[in-house]
């Protein structure tokens, strides 16, 4: 009896230490970035071009670049991912092939991002001859996000109670009507959450855009989807490791990191809010 209690107490203590350590690490990193970055943040920093070899000025092109790339990523990953998920979950029969496909999708989400980057170079930049540009980078990130989107969407579809489907079918709805009116409305919040989390991860990636369109230093905004662009994560990488005057630009690097984190955080917040909102709407 006593031994049991001791074991339990020890177990809980261990778990508490784990949680504290994880949170502590996070807090330290965040505090470091916020305290060192907040000083550089100003309206000017957010809305002007970098100047004097990126030692002065703002990071506007990087913000715009990351935003554009993320939009492209979303446009590719959301419809394609949801479509795949709907097909796999609702239409595909349970055969060896579909099981293989499903397993491959799960595995793809574990592939290192640099591999996607190289794949993007070959497919979009070279084979499709799009060149290094916003579009190529966005589509590369889109491909990388796809496994996440599909898996999250499939989970969301699975979570819609069977009774909703049966209820609709029993009322003479066709399969597609059932999915459209009585499955998707209840799955979309879950699908969106997974997808946005995938997108926010993509927004922070450097490797896939490195060879597909991100530029080292471009003190102007991309003119079209076929232009090269600056991106926050790459800019941060440059400022912290590649710049000729690293110690001088350190505050700018911290500012960039803060902006990037804030953006990712904002996207996650949107996911949470969207999920909450849609939950409420679907109840009406």
């Amino acid at each position: 009896m006593k031994l049991k209690n001791v074991t339990q107490a020890a177990g809980f203590l261990f778990l508490r230490i784990c949680v504290t350590a994880a949170i502590l690490a996070l807090v330290v990193i965040l505090a470091d970035i916020v305290t060192k970055g907040i000083g550089v943040i100003s309206w000017e920093f957010l809305t002007t071009m970098p100047k004097n070899g990126m030692t002065q000025g703002g990071i506007l092109p990087a913000i715009v670049g990351t935003f554009l790339v993320t939009v492209i990523t979303a446009l590719l990953a959301i419809p394609l991912g949801m479509g795949c998920a709907i097909y796999l979950n609702e239409y595909a029969s349970d055969t060896k092939l579909t099981r293989l496909i499903r397993m491959s999708i799960r595995n793809l989400s574990g592939v290192p991002s640099i591999v996607y980057g190289l794949f993007g170079v070959i497919l979009f930049v070279q084979l499709m001859n799009l060149g290094t540009c916003v579009l190529s980078a966005g589509m590369t990130l889109g491909l990388m996000t796809l496994p996440w989107t599909i898996t999250a969407s499939e989970e969301a579809l699975k979570n819609v109670p069977r009774s909703y489907r049966e209820g609709a079918l029993a009322l003479g709805a066709t399969k597609w009507q059932t999915i459209r009116t009585n499955v998707l409305p209840y799955a979309i919040p879950g699908m969106l959450t997974g997808t946005i989390l995938g997108l926010s991860r993509a927004a922070g990636e450097t490797a896939p855009i490195l060879f597909t369109g991100a530029a080292f230093y471009l003190p102007f905004l991309p003119k079209s989807l076929f232009s090269q662009f600056m991106a926050l994560p790459y800019h941060l990488y440059v400022m912290s490791t590649q710049h000729h005057a690293i110690s001088k630009v350190r505050p700018i690097a911290y500012g960039t990191a803060l902006v990037l984190i804030t953006m990712v955080f904002a996207m996650n917040l949107v996911a949470v809010i969207a999920r909450y909102r849609l939950r409420k709407i679907k109840m009406e």
Partner: peptide, 24 residues
């Protein structure tokens, strides 16, 4: 028509539940 063991209203209003079959 069919009525199931566990009542399975859709997460919609009372009205929309009944109107569902007509709308589709």
């Amino acid at each position: 028509g069919m009525v199931f063991q566990k009542s399975n209203p859709f997460p919609k209003s009372v009205f929309e539940n009944v109107a569902y079959g007509l709308r589709i």
